[in-house]
Amino acid sequence: MENKLVISPSPHIHSGDSVSKNMYGVLIALIPAYLVSLLFFGMGALIVSLTSVIACVGFEYLIQKYVLHTKPSICDGSAMLTGLLLAFNLPSNLPVWMIVIGALVSIGIGKMSFGGLGNNIFNPALVGRVFLLISFPVEMTSWPEPGQLTVYLDAITAATPLTILKEGGHSLPEMQDILIGHKGGSIGEVSVIALLIGFVYLLYKKIITWHIPVTIFVTVALFSGILYGIDSVKYATPMIHLATGGLVLGAVFMATDYVTSPMSKGGMIVYGVGIGIITILIRVFGAYPGGVSFAILIMNAFTPLINMYIKPKRFGEEKK
């Protein structure tokens, strides 16, 4: 029998889906937002994003090869994705050495210390971002004004809409600018429209489901709407809350991270509501102007609990 038959349990066919297809799918969905950021922040955005991606992939490779002694799996695209997402959360004038530290924390502490892809509790890119935010608060909260294409470190900074709000100012940019992305902010968050294009792509490719992002949007809109209704002078409109502070980036790309979000549809909704509420609480009552990152990290911590208590709808549970 030179031609031996293969025996394996059923099923004998596979959808052809793979981890890397999903990861590259998300990367593709990030392209529109990336193009917009290049348009507004030019060289700064390019340097920051390249540094971050290269550093993340490099650290993953080195850690897998020399620390964990496992087969490096950098080709699956997950490190690249972490790198790009981290860059998206950084200002475009951040020095290279800080980015490298952020990447090391993201990959080393956020991901590898838990055992690599699939085992981490917190979204690695956010771990890196929050680490940088706490370590270098000044650098991490001074955002270059858009349109300075050829300057990197010396870019003139401007306040983000949320900082303007926090400081009680009322000279907010036009809504149109906010949506397109002509505003101060981190590299990837600025253009709401580009991010939403990415969202549609992810839904179309069935990489994510609508549950988490939509629940976050609805919760944020409702909660901030109530506050606005109570005192329209003190609190911003729901539209401002939805369109600024990286909410769309967070809701579509960070909160939906497979590893750190709940597994059941019901769980995803609870998770989304949690992120929405915490985001507004931090923005309105907390010390930081932006709260999306913290909200996602806090709900990441609750994910195992949500998974334990909120089970998918079982077949036959509903009696008729």
């Binding site: 799996s73 699939g118 998918p312």
Partner: peptide, 11 residues
């Protein structure tokens, strides 16, 4: 490879 907890099996 290791589970990435994408929840596709659950859905």
């Amino acid at each position: 490879t290791s589970c990435i907890r994408c929840a596709k099996c659950t859905s």
